[in-house]
Amino acid sequence: MLQAINLTKQYAPDAPPALKGLNLTVAPGEIFCLLGQNGAGKTTTINLFLGFLQPTSGQALINGLSVTDHAQETKRYLAYLPETVLLYPNLSGLENLDFFASLAGFALLTDELRSLLLRAGLQADAHMRSLGGYSKGMRQKVGIAIALAKQAKVLLLDEPTSGLDPKASNEFSELLTQLSADGTAILMATHDIFRSKEVGTHIGIMRAGHLVETLPAADLTANELEAIYLQTV
């Protein structure tokens, strides 16, 4: 569903590549967690799949289509949750969800919108409040609801649990597991080793633009993963 073939990105000719020869595949139902320090190339990878950046070489494929050559079509398969979800402060959480769902071509009823927000963990009394008064975690939950509304086959997550409290973070992990069970391919960039062990099917560790380790999550304990991570980075 999601494939990187020798994917390379160099921002400037005299700068070292931010991503060098990345090869990875995320099949439907898999959750691929990318671990790595800041500047390791995780967000660059996500941005290349989103089409926000043009690769210097190599290919990013979604459902077999090159993101570069089929920019519009590949976005139809995608949902995205950034580290910090910044929405429209003049609209309520429900209106923001309605707006972004309608952008994706979904005309949802108020009950459906509320249901999505509840599924994302946003309390009912906050649905109609202006987003200007939301905490970062609450905005993040609206972002999750937006991603859910699109019913995308591929979910790209960039530090999605940043700002979520432990309970919400745990609910989010359960949500990802459900989506994965429904066949969604998920690529998640994160610093959270334990969360990635908990939800991931595969774990990739990146360093200086290289994917240096790819491990099946099921074969590791959280402590083993932490040890490998610390040795690798």
Binding site: L50, G51, F52, A71, Q72, E73, K75, R76, L78, A79, Y80, P82, T84, V85, L86, L87, Y88, F100, A101, L103, A104, G143, I146, K150
Partner: peptide, 18 residues
């Protein structure tokens, strides 16, 4: 600058329409 454009672009592939 605020970051919402990323979401807009991902949600609506035909950005010119937006």
């Amino acid at each position: 600058e605020s970051g919402t454009w990323k979401l807009v672009v991902v949600q609506q592939p035909n950005v010119m329409r937006v």
